[in-house]
């Protein structure tokens, strides 16, 4: 019991140094042209920064398994939200739209 983890201050200082360095790095690479990879790199760096905050500042690394499960579920459902929404919007022009009903049939005479 009572195994609440007190992390040494040195760990916090190391993490903040990495976070600041990654912030400088993300600004720097934004000005270099990697084509579509620019977005991948920017999001990738943000994910690493978020993980460092979650694991060390938020102590998830030392949290109860049930807490880690809930946190992980949040991330998974976020990915599902983005992936399914995008798969809809990005696939809309893959196939021609069916001809509208009015064009396929004579419009009924209006009174």
């Amino acid at each position: 019991m009572s195994e609440h983890h007190v992390m040494p201050i040195r760990v916090y200082l190391t993490i903040i140094a990495i976070l600041m360095a990654l912030t400088v790095a993300t600004v720097w690479v934004a000005f270099l042209d990697f084509g579509y990879l620019n977005t991948v790199i920017a999001v990738g760096i943000a994910v690493i920064k978020a993980l460092l905050v979650v694991m060390y500042f938020m102590h998830l690394k030392y949290a109860a398994p049930i807490t880690r499960l809930f946190a992980g579920a949040g991330a998974v459902f976020f990915v599902i939200l983005i992936a399914i929404t995008l798969s809809d919007y990005r696939s809309r022009d893959w196939f021609p739209f069916p001809e509208p009903w009015e064009q396929a049939h004579e419009a009924p005479a209006s009174h």
């Binding site: 270099l32 042209d33 620019n38 977005t39 760096i45 943000a46 920064k49 905050v53 979650v54 500042f57």
Partner: peptide, 20 residues
């Protein structure tokens, strides 16, 4: 920390994307 994480994503998405 959560509010900090939201900003960690907002900064590159709003300020940095499309700079090159």
């Amino acid at each position: 920390h959560f509010v900090d994480i939201v900003w960690i994503f907002l900064f590159p998405m709003l300020y940095l994307i499309g700079r090159h």
